[in-house]
Design a protein around this nucleic acid. Structure first.
Lengths: 189, 189
DNA sequence: CAAAACGTTAAATAACTTTTTAACAAAATA
DNA sequence: TATTTTGTTAAAAAGTTATTTAACGTTTTG
């Protein structure tokens, strides 16, 4: 047993890193990001900017996997392409500021939720309105349409609210109303 | 063509409902809820309380599917078991208030995120501390450990902040700082 | 300008999840 | 207490998503 202490120490550090990468990936899994994309993010989080080949090496996966993984993470705005001078290969960097991660990720999702549902509500209400305006329809059917219309109408305030929340989160205004304790070091824009 | 106007009207209403159910399901898909569970939620949202058999009938799926689907939705706190008197079968009801849906869903997720990651950070820091406290370790390895420790330390303020946000959302305090416009009708506790 | 390197796309395979059918256990009723 | 009904669990089937290998087009460099 007991080989080189430095080698063991490095192993410990790698181990600690894996521990956090795993829980990061599990966290992201909660929000619908696949585990492998989460693991990729976690790895990039610790390594700083990486090329696809470095990712492949680190994770032991294929290059196309890395390519699609990075692309997916870019969609969520949590990974960006970077320029590393004197480097032919493209490099990518993970968003290291979790506050910004949160902002990018959730504002994006919430905006999409609002848009998607308000649009379908608009269409749906239009359809039931046609029923309501039709003379030839019986009262009981109209009542059904009326109820439907009302349920949809009642849900709108939620989407308006969510839209405001998304805007506040995207702009960073949310940190005015719910401040965070600064760490000892800086936090730039 | 042009059959019974009432039948056509009912069809229109069903159509409108499906439209909204679909976008609701797509929305939930954004947050890692499977589409079929989302569809189930949407259906319950419109129908009010339902038995498993009613769900099966409405969605044309098997009963075990409904059972597991309901269970999953219960985990997210967006469906509850109800008591319908004179009814032997169990009935379930979907959370109709989207504000409460939001509160239940996201506070649950965020609390889990905080717990999971703070725990792994604690363990990871413990491991790197052992390296830092070991006399036999070279400076360059210690420096690596130091960096690791710092990265983890710097991430903590985010989790503390998220924890406060989760608490505010769970308690409803969030609606004091970001109010919503009431619809014309009531909004009870 | 030719050869190599890089990243992406396409097709095939593998892994995983969802869904169903079937069997089972628990509860209620007669 | 026996029979029926209800809900869940287990195993099989189907469907979907992730991953890889292979091929392609583009860019770079010698």
């Amino acid at each position: 047993m007991a080989g080189d202490p430095n080698a063991e120490a490095r192993q410990s550090i790698e181990n600690a890193k894996d521990l956090v990468v795993d829980s990061l990936a599990e966290t992201m899994d909660l929000y619908g990001i696949t585990r492998s994309a989460g693991t990729l993010y976690g790895t990039m989080y610790f390594e700083g900017d990486m090329t696809l080949d470095e990712m492949r090496e680190e994770l032991g996966m294929s290059k196309p996997s890395m390519s699609t993984g990075v692309k997916k993470l870019q969609e969520f705005n949590v990974v960006k392409k970077t320029f590393r001078r004197g480097q032919r290969k493209h490099t990518y960097v993970a968003e290291r500021d979790f506050f910004r991660f949160f902002s990018n990720f959730f504002s994006h999702k919430w905006e999409r939720e609002v848009h998607l549902n308000l649009e379908s509500i608009r269409e749906a209400q239009q359809q039931v309105n046609e029923v309501l305006n039709d003379e030839a329809i019986d009262e009981d059917v109209k009542k059904e349409a009326e109820e439907m219309h009302q349920i949809l109408e009642d849900s709108k305030p939620y989407y308006y609210w969510l839209n405001r929340l998304a805007a506040m989160v995207r702009s960073g205004e949310i940190f005015d109303v719910i401040p965070f304790e600064k760490p000892n070091s800086e936090r730039d824009t």
